[in-house]
Design a protein around this nucleic acid. Structure first.
Lengths: 92, 92
DNA sequence: AAGGGCGATGTCGTTCTTGATCATCTGAAT
DNA sequence: ATTCAGATGATCAAGAACGACATCGCCCTT
């Protein structure tokens, strides 16, 4: 499933055309990014939640040079699926 | 940020009212769930991707009885943030 | 219609998260 | 205003995540 498929879903559940649906998708993504940039968590009941967490891993591995790599500290996006979403998967 | 905030974002970038915006959000979530239930990956360029992966962890812990618990195998949702999203976080 | 550029994959070893459970508390959703 | 999903914490061990890079796949924009 890609962006266009999501726009299709909107199209089906509304009277908007594809172009307008895509704009909606973009605006949503934009707002999500904005929130995450501000270190805000995004919580969608019944689906899941996004959170910004500190990157703690201190070492990586350069497979070519076969030596350790220092990993700069930073941020990560962590997604946790909600119970409802988990259940639907279990049933499958 | 919660569902209502997302609806707000749609409201700002369109001529739809809050109720309609919420319906759009719901339809999107619904389609996302449907795709994941079918083990389909959801890929949003510039944002990130969701994938359904097999749960391999085989043990949990019952804190009360202090003993291991067998974990039934199942599925998990894995989210990976895209390059663009990572960059915006790094800048922060 | 088609190429460009982002995402997926595999690799490595160390560090860190995951995962079930239950009670309690916060707060999202209706 | 009410309800109930989600976060938290404690627990241990095994599996996953982490960065860099090349290659392949394919989404997205032209």
């Amino acid at each position: 499933m890609i962006k266009n498929d999501i726009a299709l879903a909107i199209e089906k559940n509304s009277e908007f055309n594809r172009a307008k649906s895509l704009l909606i998708v973009e605006s949503i993504l934009k707002s999500l990014k904005a929130a995450l940039e501000k270190n805000q968590k995004v919580e969608i009941r019944g689906f899941g939640s996004f959170r910004v967490v500190d990157k703690k891993t201190g070492f990586g591995r350069d497979i070519r040079r076969k030596k350790q790599i220092k990993i700069e500290k930073g941020k990560r996006i962590k997604f946790r699926s909600g119970q409802e979403l988990k259940n639907t998967l279990v049933r499958k």
